[in-house]
Design a protein around this nucleic acid. Structure first.
Length: 230
RNA sequence: GCUGUUA
């Protein structure tokens, strides 16, 4: 099942899940994680609700990884209230729980809820890890929260996390989406070895803001750097 | 085999 989901063959994965059960093999926690993820990718909300009911019957709904996967699934399907209900029922939340609920609300442009959960996370003393930082930067980019993004940038600098390329790329992307190509370029120039994602963030930032000449120039630079545009 | 992840 996992072999199929990680290649994007989510429907095949669901068929295998059915077949497995026809053969009398009971799904465990890992099976459910994979299948919840597949259903989320397919945005099959009816199937997702049915699977959630089955998970409740097995008593796994309080498992933090299962709950996080369910939240992500509901957010992918646009069911933010359902995601919140799962979030509220998690006995012990981890960083992934917060990442899922914050990114989920940001993806749907729910600015108050995004900041609400972000502030609550801070209040509860949950320290963001690398992935949470990526998720919150993504959230800031989606909802255009430049000020919050800059505060997070300060936090990243204080924690010396800005040397990580993934974080640097997420900053370049966040500033570009917030409309500050100046800040975006400033971060880009600090990257020791920009990859195709770094360049892509700059190019799409210029393209998104109607600066086609600059987008074109940077595309030429990519090739001059010996990188292959994807 | 294992949830949240930047163009």
């Amino acid at each position: 099942i996992r072999g199929h989901t990680c290649h994007g063959h989510n429907f095949c994965a669901l068929e295998l899940f059915e077949k497995m059960q026809e053969e009398g093999i009971k799904p465990d926690k890992v099976t459910f994680l994979c299948v919840v993820k597949a259903i989320g990718a397919l945005e099959m909300i009816e199937q997702g609700t049915l699977l959630h009911d089955r998970i409740i019957l097995t008593g796994l709904e309080c498992d933090v990884m299962i709950a996080n996967a369910l939240m992500h699934m509901y957010c992918s399907c646009g069911r933010l209230e359902s995601a919140c209900r799962v979030f509220d029922r998690i006995p012990v939340r981890d960083v992934a729980s917060w990442s899922a609920v914050i990114t989920g609300h940001a993806a749907h442009g729910n600015v108050p809820a995004t900041f609400g959960y972000f502030n609550l996370m801070h209040q509860e003393g949950m320290k963001p890890d690398k992935v949470t930082v990526l998720c919150i930067l993504k959230a800031c980019g989606i909802i255009g929260a430049l000020e919050q993004g800059k505060l997070l940038h300060d936090y990243i600098r204080r924690n010396e996390a800005d040397t990580e390329l993934a974080v640097g790329n997420a900053l370049v992307d966040m500033y570009a989406r917030c409309g500050s190509m100046e800040d975006s370029l400033k971060v880009f120039k600090t990257l020791l070895k920009p990859d195709i994602i770094s360049w892509g963030a700059i190019i799409s930032g210029y393209a998104e803001h109607g600066c086609f000449g600059l987008a074109w120039d940077y595309l030429q630079k990519v090739e001059r750097e010996g990188l292959k545009p994807n």
